[in-house]
Amino acid sequence: MSRVVTLKINGQDVSGREDESILDVARENGIEIPTLCQLDGLSNVGACRLCLVEIVGVSRLLPACVTRVAEGMEVNTESERLLRYRRMIVEMLFSEGNHVCPVCISNGHCELQDTAIALQINHIGMPYRFPVRQVDASHARYGLDPNRCILCTRCVRVCDEIEGAHTWDIMGRGIASQLVTDLATPWGESETCTSCGKCVQICPTGALFIKGKSVGEMTKRPDFLPYLAMMRNRKNGS
């Protein structure tokens, strides 16, 4: 059994189990920290950097999703500087791809859009990069529009960790990174894809979608995930 510790988040006294992350404890106490790569039920990669928080006595900013709580910790999730960085991160994501909200199936149900709204972003301060990216519509039921992909790797993880297929992965590096199925073969020709659709449901944007939906029609349902993960852990006896 892990011990219970007490700490302060934004000046508020809270308690949590030693094996919980700052994000877990913050959420339990109704303190909002924006996230994109994190999803309950998947492993955490600490990649989007939206959840960075300040911890008294630690010079670096640390991602709340992977940082464990500790006794006496003092966490700040809301400084001027953190807000500025979070806005820049979201602006970076918009500048990196081709996000055309009005014609997106996820318009109005998009975590990227929601995060932008929550951070009061009304324009993108850095130059758009307008990359050239090819849509993959080869799968019978689903599609991938990489123009809307933010490389959060949730699909990669759900496919690997929950479905066990590991159809998705990232190819290339840096700004040239891209999502691929199998060895960069068309999705429809994938020999590993089970067509379970989990990736589509947990994609935060409209990058992965069910064919036949029109603008704004695609609502995602990632809520099955914690349940599946819990059942799996139970089966593995942990």
């Binding site: 990669v45 600490g46 990649a47 989007c48 950097r49 820049m88 991160i89 970076m92 994501l93 500048s95 990196e96 850095m126 130059p127 990069r129 933010i150 490389l151 790797t153 990232i170 290339g172 590096r173 840096g174 700004i175 040239a176 990174s177």
Partner: peptide
């Protein structure tokens, strides 16, 4: 490597 947003997009910007 392209894993985290600030470095992936920031270095390009």
């Amino acid at each position: 490597c392209g894993k985290c947003v600030p470095c992936r997009v920031g270095t390009a910007q």
